[in-house]
């Protein structure tokens, strides 16, 4: 019972200590075995593996269809609307964007009959985004949504990134109120997640902290800010001049800056642990990419 005795001694010494008053020096012999480092090393290894995308570098057909939709058909609609729809073009465009961005994703996603686990992951991430947006309600523009969406895109691919983003935009407005801005927000969040997924798969974006933060900043400032400022301009006025565009971007810049720094902040503190957690879930429950 030698071990037991040493445990008793230890407890007396450990619990008996008071913070300020110094007890008599009692050194515990250090065992020869160092701290369980191989275990730490193993975890680090897992993380290293992750950094290099194991994924195939080739894009799937579905992804191509989505890219064409987003990069060709949507700008085409915007052009068409501005050219032909007269005064009401911006509403035409915003509706066009809802239809075009969502149709391919819906078709693809619904068409392949997603598994229960996929649904759960998307729902959880979207719920985290919504709860995050609600939790920081007192700080305008300081939201973790974009960070969550980017992480979703990096870990679960472009499609999931888009769906999480769009879902956050849609559901959070059930709590904050729907309006003409809903489709724009859904699209902006979605496209940020989508691009994060694509860039990661192509190997252009690594899951390292600095890279994610840079992407997060650029995406929030230029994609989210760019789209949302444009949308408010279109809502207010239908005569678009360089001056009015510039004016709206300048007035929007401080808000976008706060939003972008929030994204950077959240990615800086949370991206690594969050990605680790998601990777563990993927491994543990066989959710590795299809």
């Amino acid at each position: 019972m030698l071990q037991d005795e040493s445990l008793d001694d230890f407890l007396d010494a450990f619990l008996g200590e008071k913070g300020h008053q110094k007890p008599e020096k009692k050194r515990w012999p250090t065992p020869a075995i160092p701290i369980n480092t191989d275990n730490l090393a193993a975890v680090a290894m897992v993380h290293k593996d992750m950094k290099e995308p194991i994924a195939k570098k080739k894009l799937s057909k579905r992804t191509w269809v989505a890219i064409v939709m987003i990069l060709v058909i949507i700008p085409l609609t915007i052009w068409f609307g501005i050219r032909f729809m007269g005064d009401r073009k911006y509403y035409f465009i915003s509706m066009g964007i809802i239809v075009y961005t969502f149709v391919p994703f819906l078709m693809v996603f619904e068409g392949r009959k997603p598994q229960a686990r996929e649904l759960i992951i998307i729902a959880i991430l979207a719920a985290i985004g919504v709860a995050g947006r609600a939790a920081f309600f007192m700080l305008p523009q300081f939201k973790p949504v974009v960070a969550v969406v980017i992480i979703a895109g990096v870990c679960f691919g472009a499609e999931s990134g888009f769906l999480v983003g769009a879902m956050v935009g849609f559901v959070s407005n059930f709590f904050f109120g729907q309006g003409p801005w809903t489709p724009w927000q859904m699209f902006s969040f979605g496209i940020i997640g989508f691009l994060a997924g694509i860039l990661f798969r192509k190997g252009l974006l690594k899951s390292s902290k600095p890279q994610l933060c840079v992407y997060g900043f650029l995406a929030t400032f230029f994609i989210y800010g760019g789209i949302m400022n444009m949308s408010s301009l279109l809502m207010w006025s239908s005569i678009i001049t360089w001056k009015s565009v510039l004016a709206v971007y300048i007035t929007g810049a401080p808000f976008d800056l706060i939003h972008a720094s929030a994204t950077v902040f959240f990615l800086f503190v949370a991206s690594k642990p969050m990605i680790e957690k998601l990777e563990r879930i993927k491994k543990k429950y066989g959710l590795i990419e299809r």
Partner: peptide
């Protein structure tokens, strides 16, 4: 869109739970 509307319902379930 059955799968997405189920996700929608799940998100509405998870947010108050979280």
């Amino acid at each position: 869109i059955p799968a997405l509307s189920l996700i929608f319902s799940m998100v509405l379930r998870f947010v108050p739970k979280f």
